[in-house]
């Protein structure tokens, strides 16, 4: 699992879901320090706080700039190429997850999810990246 205090950027257009994810992160010992309501905002946060973000958890379906578009932008930039990135998806988008895997997402979580499932998925990411 990621070390306690790992700094997380949480991206979701729904305030409630951002709070839910941030709460789960805290329960898992992480530090959800930054939030954004879409991929464009998240990109700005990432650039402003470059070096202060260790992990991104982003929703897929958002207006303006989707989670997938944001992921592609992140992976295209050498500074963020290796930054752990987890996507949250609705079940109806799960079939398209291969596109996200090809774009370099480290894992995905299907909504609805429990804190335990989020922790499990983050654990898989950490294990993969530490191997």
């Amino acid at each position: 699992m990621f070390a306690p205090g790992t700094r997380v950027l949480v991206v979701d257009d729904m305030t409630t879901m951002r709070k839910v994810v941030m709460r789960s992160c805290k329960e898992l010992g992480l530090a959800p320090m930054f939030e954004a309501a879409d991929g464009n905002q998240a990109w700005n946060v990432l650039n402003e706080k470059s070096g202060e973000i260790d992990l991104i958890i982003s929703d897929w379906n958002m207006p303006n700039c989707t989670g997938l578009e944001f992921l592609k932008r992140v992976r295209a930039d050498a500074r963020f190429k290796a930054l752990p990135f987890v996507l949250l998806t609705a079940e109806s988008e799960a079939s398209q997850v291969k596109e996200a895997l090809l774009a370099g997402v480290d894992n995905y979580v299907i909504k609805p999810f429990s804190t335990a499932v989020l922790g499990q998925k983050l654990g898989q990411v950490h294990k993969k990246l530490s191997a």
């Binding site: 729904m14 305030t15 409630t16 879901m17 609705a90 079940e91 109806s92 988008e93 799960a94 909504k111 609805p112």
Partner: peptide
């Protein structure tokens, strides 16, 4: 305003599963 989007988000998750 702060809390009301929860109704939309819960429905969104329900709808996503039922739709599949």
């Amino acid at each position: 305003e702060e809390v009301k989007d929860a109704a939309g988000e819960i429905l969104n998750i329900i709808f996503g599963q039922a739709k599949t």
